[in-house]
Design a protein around this nucleic acid. Structure first.
Length: 762
DNA sequence: GAGTTTGAAACT
DNA sequence: CAGTTTCAAACTC
């Protein structure tokens, strides 16, 4: 085994050996040559050949989903095979995790790395029938995991520029952790070998040593990783770890919990679609839930297969995937997190999720749930938006989602997902619940719409209160591949409630969607950024007050209304619940949330278009009352605050009052709040400045997507100042116009990313 | 529910 | 970059 094969392996791996990931892995747990040998062969055959193509090829995505589905089923079913597959996956993830940073830039590289893992499983040894299966499945799984662009809009996308640091972190954490479970399973290794995929064994063994010997280091590493990227996660893991007398067990448990949660979730829309019987999942979920982590371990000892399958592999794979998919479904994530934090039985959490999720496993994304109501949950990117839409049943959940989205990143599910930390999620949850309790209005707001009621057709007429999150389009000619399509623009797949025709905005056409997205982004990097940029005050307060605290919001590009006087939803500013700003080119602006002139005064910009203040104000006041926007004390139609015509704290409540939240409102919210939580520790780069900036302060640079950063870099040439620049004026523009030196752009940018940009660099 | 209006997005 | 067209949401009846 040693020599020839090993050599091969070495050669194969040479590519990524150089990569930090590889190094990391090595440092983590030295791979035993013996095992590696088998692996090496595997790598050779499969990984490099087939997989890479997968990622590159556009078609991959669709396949991925399918495959994923399969894989999912296996894992869920807790078939032995699946376990091995998972193991492989985990390993891969590991690499990924390690080199998350690289991932962004070198997605291709990563893929290769992954591929090997897959191949390993496949090639290694003459696979028994089971192995064969694995061989088939593994690649798929792997592909799915990485190749899959983050569930489309999702977080996980390799390219995901908007990157999901958090996401990555999670994964990395998952990876690290995953090792543990496997290690644990090591004792059973012998038995496992037969059943487990060779790759899985490989991984296990390699890790095995590390597990016991380097357990501490591993943990620390993992923690570091987590901490580094997301302290919260790390802490959570640490906690788990500490809690359990047996670190390994603790991890396993945590994994189990996590993975349970994830299991509950359908990962991909595609999944759903493909899943022959969605109903099965719930059952599985339950199963997992019931399992006692500790017992699991014991069980594992008794029945290695079971252990591996149900716990380690599932947990790992699920965890991994779940982490990845966080973005898609943060709600679930939140649940997961909650579970961890509570330390309460994972089962409870799981159950909740289950309940929340449609009985059929509401697909995170695209899949249109058989049930109507569930549909809102979409994948990825836009995910957040999708997530917002939920069953009416889950008012809490809905609120939560809505809330978070509004606070965080409405526009971009990605950003939200990726960036939101578990803690943040928790906070948001808390907030939501509290808010809900406190605010009667909220109830009034029909955030959650019962889609079921909607007939296939008229979905379009949304309830006025319907949050944007639940995007439904009615496209006929755009194929839902243009920004005309609200779903597409929001970064979500079209779902059942949509009345679109010839829709390509579906998981099935992921390739197309991504390509189109990419194209659009190339044209306008901010095309998928939230149109309305909001910032809230410091993060810490997010929980309680951010919502209530006044926040400034502006439309990123400004409107161009001519006849609506910015008093109708035709106006994007109005629709977004924000006042018009200098950037707007509107005529006769009467935006109750803030007139352009007001902004102008503050910004000192040109555009003295509306000067009909007195009359306008009166009218505005009336309108305001009419609109019931009054909920916001802060909102001043008069915009006493020139700076921010409208302060939007926009708690969900606000729009709820009318029941008609501006569509973008939910989606658009600034992410500042959530981020803040995370970023608290970080120094604020932002300086004290204009009100806007102040509001935005909370947002750390990190949050800002690279793309945005780039775009907004001073050099990027912001034409903001010119009101005319309608097309791609960066969010900065809002501030940029202001004469004073402002650093606001960062803040703005953060909130912007609605979609993870497909293009790695852009 | 059909038709109109509106303004963003896309195109030239 | 400006003007025009296309598109789909918002709105009205």
């Amino acid at each position: 085994m040693d020599t020839p094969e090993k050599t091969q392996i070495t050669a194969t791996l040479s590519k990524f050996e150089d990569s930090p990931v590889f190094n990391y892995i090595n440092s983590l747990s030295p791979i035993k040559p013996v095992k590696s040998i088998n692996i090496a062969q595997t790598f050779h055959s499969l990984s490099f050949a087939s997989l890479p193509s997968v990622f590159t090829s556009p078609h991959v995505s669709s396949h991925k989903e399918t495959r994923f589905l399969k894989r999912h089923n296996y894992s869920d079913l807790s078939k032995p095979e699946s376990s091995s597959g998972n193991g492989n996956e985990v390993c891969k993830d590991e690499g990924v995790v390690v080199d998350a940073a690289q991932l962004y830039h070198n997605s291709a590289e990563l893929h290769e790395n992954f591929d090997p893992g897959m191949s390993i499983g496949e090639s290694s040894v003459e696979p028994p029938s089971e192995h064969l299966k694995f061989a088939i499945e593994l690649p798929q799984t792997l592909k799915y995991g990485w190749g899959r662009p983050g569930g489309k809009y999702g977080c996980g996308s390799p390219d995901g520029r908007y990157g999901t640091q958090t996401d990555m972190v999670s994964e990395s954490a998952g990876t690290s952790l995953s090792l543990v479970p496997f290690a644990n399973g090591t004792s059973h290794k012998s038995s496992l070998e037969g059943q487990v995929h060779p790759a899985g064994l490989y991984k296990i063994e390699s890790k095995k040593e590390a597990t016991e010997c380097d357990w501490e280091s591993l943990i620390s590493d993992a923690a570091d990783l987590l901490i580094f990227n997301s302290p919260i996660d790390a802490d959570g893991f640490k906690e788990l770890f500490q809690k359990s007398p047996n670190p390994v067990v603790g991890f396993c448990t945590s994994f189990n919990e996590l993975h349970k949660t994830q299991i509950v979730n359908p990962f991909g829309s595609g999944e759903q679609n493909e899943m022959g019987d969605p109903s099965t999942q719930p059952g599985e979920t339950i199963e997992l839930t019931q399992m006692d982590p500790t017992q699991d371990n014991l069980a594992a000892n008794e029945d290695p297969n079971k252990y591996m399958t149900s716990n380690a592999s599932k947990a790992v794979s699920n965890l991994h995937r779940g982490m990845r998919r966080r973005c898609l479904d943060f709600e679930k994530v939140g649940s997961r997190r909650k579970n961890i934090d509570d330390g309460s039985s994972s089962s409870s959490v799981l159950v909740q999720l289950d309940e929340k999720t449609t009985p059929k496993n509401t697909p995170l994304v695209p899949v249109k749930p058989g049930g109507d109501s569930s549909r809102c949950i979409l994948p990825g990117i836009g995910l957040h938006l999708n997530a917002l839409a939920i069953n009416s049943k889950d008012s809490n959940k809905i609120k939560l989602e809505t809330f978070s989205s509004s606070i965080t990143l409405p526009g971009s599910a990605d950003s939200f997902n990726s960036r939101t930390t578990d803690q943040e999620l928790d906070e948001s949850l808390t907030l939501v619940s509290s808010e809900r309790d406190n605010d009667p209005n909220e109830n009034a707001v029909p955030l959650v719409e019962d889609f079921s009621q909607t007939s296939p057709k008229k979905k379009r007429r949304r309830l006025e209160g319907e949050p944007e999150a639940c995007k439904r389009c009615n496209c006929k000619k755009s194929k839902c591949l243009k920004l005309y399509c609200e779903c597409f623009a929001a970064g979500v797949y079209c779902i059942e409630p949509c009345a679109c025709q010839d829709c390509f905005n579906k998981p099935i056409h992921e390739d197309t969607v991504l390509a189109t997205r990419k194209q659009i982004e190339s044209r306008n990097p901010l095309a998928f950024a939230p149109k309305v940029i909001r910032s809230s005050e410091s993060a810490p307060e997010i929980r309680d007050e951010s919502i209530k605290t006044p926040a400034s919001a502006r439309h990123k590009r400004g409107c161009n209304c001519k006849k609506s006087t910015c008093l109708k939803k035709y106006c994007e500013c109005y629709q977004g619940g924000v006042g018009c700003s200098i950037n707007c080119r509107c005529e006769g602006c009467k935006n109750v949330f803030g007139r352009k002139d007001g902004a102008a005064s503050m910004e000192m910009e040109d555009e003295p278009e509306d000067e009909t203040d007195a009359s306008v104000k009166n009218g505005v006041d009336k309108i305001l009352q009419k609109t019931e926007l009054q909920n916001n004390d802060e909102q001043n139609p008069n915009s006493a605050l020139p700076t921010t015509p409208l302060r939007f704290c926009r708690p969900l409540v606000q729009f709820s009052s009318k029941g008609k939240p501006p569509r973008s409102f939910l989606g658009v919210g600034s992410s500042c709040g959530l981020y803040t939580g995370q970023r608290n520790g970080k120094p604020n780069i932002l300086r004290p400045q204009s009100k806007f900036e102040k509001q935005c302060q909370n947002v750390p640079d990190d949050d800002i997507p690279e793309i945005l950063r780039e775009n907004h870099s001073p050099s990027s040439g912001i034409k903001t100042s010119s009101p005319n620049s309608k097309r791609v004026s960066p969010p900065q523009n809002n501030f940029g116009s202001s004469p004073g030196p402002r650093s606001g752009r960062k803040l703005i940018l953060q909130s912007i990313p609605s979609f993870p940009s497909l293009t790695p660099q852009h």
